[in-house]
Design a protein around this nucleic acid. Sequence first.
RNA 1: GGUCCGGUAGCUCAGCUGGAUAGAGCAACAGCCUUCUAAGCUGUGGGUCUCGGGUUCGAAUCCCGACCGGAUCACCA
Length: 613
Amino acid sequence: MTLEQHISSLAKSAVKDLYDVEATDAQIQLQKTRPEFEGNITLVVFPFVKLARKAPAQVAAEIGEELMKSELVAKYNAVQGFLNLSISDAFWVEQLRAIDADEHYGRFERPSEKALPFKEGEGVGSPLMMVEYSSPNTNKPLHLGHVRNNLLGYSIAKIQEANGWKVVKTNIVNDRGIHICKSMLAWLKFGNGETPESSGKKGDHLIGDYYVRFDKEYKAQIAELTAKGMDEETAKREAPLMLEAQEMLRKWEANDPEVRALWAKMNEWVYAGFDETYKRMGVSFDKIYYESNTYLEGKSEVEKGLASGAFYRREDGSVWADLTKDGLDEKLLLRSDGTSVYMTQDIGTAKLRFQDYPIDKMVYVVGNEQEYHFKVLSILLDRLGFPFGKELVHFSYGMVELPNGKMKSREGTVVDADDLMDKMVSDAREISKDKVNTLQGITEAEADEIARKVGLGALKYFILKVDPRKNMLFNPAESIDFNGNTGPFIQYTYARIQSVLRKSVSPKDGLSSVSDSGLSAEGGLDAKELALIQRLCEYPAAVRTAGDEFSPAVLCNYAYALACDFNSFYHDLSILNEPDEQKKTLRLLLSANVAKILKSAFGLLGIEMPERM
RNA sequence: GGUCCGGUAGCUCAGCUGGAUAGAGCAACAGCCUUCUAAGCUGUGGGUCUCGGGUUCGAAUCCCGACCGGAUCACCA
């Protein structure tokens, strides 16, 4: 039972005894005592003031007196309508012992309340959540916007696992369409047979360069045409390069062997590049879908919908869904030339996924610019008779903005993912050179590995600590900090603890004897020790909230608070030099569990911990 | 124009299911390493929580209305 549950039940009986009223859960308002007052947990007594017909401070004092009958409450003080309770040291020590004994502290066996029912006949097991994230286009390398997507997706998957879900991480690769044709065409025209091997470029960057090249040449053609007096709209439509790209797309759909071969070759280059970036970022997938394999399924679903009357065909042959009854517009599903659009493919992908897995909840990690798309997709799937349509979750996150606005691939105003990771790691390496005292005696390779973890830790934390729903700003001119509320700060706290544990004579013996002999609260807990234990107790709630709200930021905030508490404790109190053996072992045990939970929380964020730094 | 999201310190962000004097980090300034890692700790300055109403014991938080910023409403993805 948590402290809140204990106090809540005690408070209810106190109110019953004193005022003969059954208090509701909503009336029991508990909060952590603010640091400027004495106490650990505070009961807000305003809800009882009216029925007691007494002044708030008096009500608080009366309830406080009543609660003192429990061994749990050691002291109380009443300030206006706030009853501040000091919980007995014995309780806290017992909590620490329990946390230490629990290897999976902060993980839940059962799904959260939001879980859908188990599949019939499946018996025991966790409900299954599929999380789609990343979903790149194959015509350009990953940039900072994708980084946010990937980090959020991966972390959300880990967090939901901790909350009792079985999670399947998935990626839908947008490997076909006009965008890739543009790169292919530019490569054919201007590439002179360049390959990743011949140029030494990563495949995704090479393809991206030709995508940019296409746009440059295309714009030149438009300029040429408008100079001859053509209006801009027509020029955009009639430019030879655009016509060629569209022709190439039609050939692709018609399975033209040459186009298909080129497409396959260039996509391979891109995948090799993506794999490298994913690996470095530390994200992975359990199942990858390709649009080229799902769009036909989508088309056939649309045809079925057409037959059943869910959709309709216009005179020009295009197929539409009328969503005006749902308060939306009409939505195109198939172009007049019969080719499919994004929505068509998403319908097919959804169908295949639900065929492949017993999915209880489908989550799409996709930017908030696509909210309309997912609203429509949900309705369309429902209309096609898929029961999961209404249940899909669009985890809509905010954009990463640069000081001068949004990133635009074609305009070259992007922060490249590979470059950014390089920069972070080399910055970390540079900073570590000043730490000759703590990092002496390690090899170059070890130093590189630490810099890799720290640099990526700084980047990941920087991105994940922001509320995912909000847009965030990244200023390339200012490098990401390694001090203050940052990933490295928390990694540093962890490394410090590891250092202490390494230096304790025989930490294992020391710690196990604590568990055996029984850690006691004799001599009393120091305020810093108590605060740290109380913080450790909050971890499961943080994991739960992060899961319910789909917010890694909650765990960042928690880990930061825990690290702050530890650093304060570490500064004020000695661990290894503490003469009192009882206190020393308690502090060692406490430190070890802080490290355990910091590592656990960072694990849920996808951030690695260095053992020293 | 319709819909959705946001506006908190110079900057980047917490806090938002209503609770005590609104918090961090960065930047600025001042201290702390013969002591377990100074990527740390302590302190100072910095606020009309965009504005105006309302709800109540109590509003940054909830409601209404303005203003400002962003997204979206494609035979793009």
